[in-house]
């Protein structure tokens, strides 16, 4: 019998520390598979964020650095500049990337750093206990927006793909979702493309995953995907925003 799907060698044997049903693990696996498929295990390095995926440096089976909150793109910039023969990615959540690390992500993207950035958007701060994120939806209740996110007071959620697509330098920007096997298969293609472009040192690549937080949303893992589909996808539309490697980019559905 032939093994057709198994834990990739680019993941360590350490079990993930995420809650049951948390889709961080799916994003990890897609990245790990793309690195394995591109034959990059010996030249790859990643940067972990602060947040639920703070321990990502324990899960990827190659050199990893753990950055201060929001600073992963700056740390990755330093790593890539120091060792241009290596390939570097960051893995960041919405608080890390879209709140405290806004300057770092915008400027790494604007410089066209030859990095891949994987951004997990689940509209909430998970690790600290379900506080409001920059991506929290209008009227969504969190522990720091107990009456719902009041957009008059705190503004609307930030759409990072759209924001970064206004810059000239980024090479590839796509938003994908992880809410069903079919969507995960699409996401796998996008992740594979980002890592391929990274391998070819083409430029800055950015993948946003629309994900879930069953624990802090208080919804079971299966239903939380439906909640994300109904509530997140209308605001965070999946699609390719920029692909300098393809002539015809479909763009996001309006």
């Amino acid at each position: 019998m032939e093994v057709i799907a198994r834990r990739p060698e680019t993941l360590t044997k350490t079990p993930f520390t995420y809650c049951p049903g948390c889709l961080h693990g799916v994003a990890h696996r897609l990245i790990a598979e793309a690195i394995e498929e591109n034959g990059l295990i010996n030249q790859m390095a990643g940067v972990a964020p602060v947040g639920c995926s703070v321990f990502a440096y324990k899960f990827f089976n190659f050199d990893m650095a753990e950055a201060a909150h929001g600073r992963a793109p700056a740390v990755a910039t330093g790593m890539k500049r120091a060792r241009p023969d290596m390939h570097v990615f960051t893995y960041q959540g919405d608080g890390d990337l879209a709140a405290i690390g806004t300057a770092e992500i915008v400027h790494a993207a604007n410089r066209g750093e030859k990095l891949s950035v994987f951004f997990v958007n689940n509209a909430i701060y998970g690790m600290t206990g379900g506080q409001m994120a920059p991506t929290t939806l209008p009227d969504m209740k969190t522990t720091t927006s107990p009456y719902g996110r009041n957009v008059e007071d705190i503004g609307y959620p930030i759409r990072m793909c759209e924001l970064l697509s206004t810059l000239v330098a980024p090479y590839y920007v796509e938003r994908v979702s992880l809410l069903s096997p079919a969507e995960i298969i699409k996401a796998k293609k996008a992740v594979g493309k980002a890592i391929q472009y990274n391998r070819e040192n083409r430029g800055f690549t950015f993948i946003e995953f629309v994900s879930t937080c069953p624990t802090n949303w208080g919804i079971d893992p299966v239903k939380s995907r439906d909640w994300a589909r109904d509530n997140m996808l209308p605001f965070f539309k999946v699609g390719c925003f920029r692909d300098k490697g393809e002539e015809n980019v479909q763009g996001v559905e309006k």
Binding site: A45, V47, A67, A74, V75, G78, M79, R81, A82, A103
Partner: peptide, 19 residues
């Protein structure tokens, strides 16, 4: 860098790469 904060974290990354 875009800020001193970014600059020192770039240093962290490059130093982490042993240079």
């Amino acid at each position: 860098a875009e800020s001193e904060v970014a600059a020192i974290n770039m240093v962290y990354g490059a130093a982490g790469a042993g240079k």
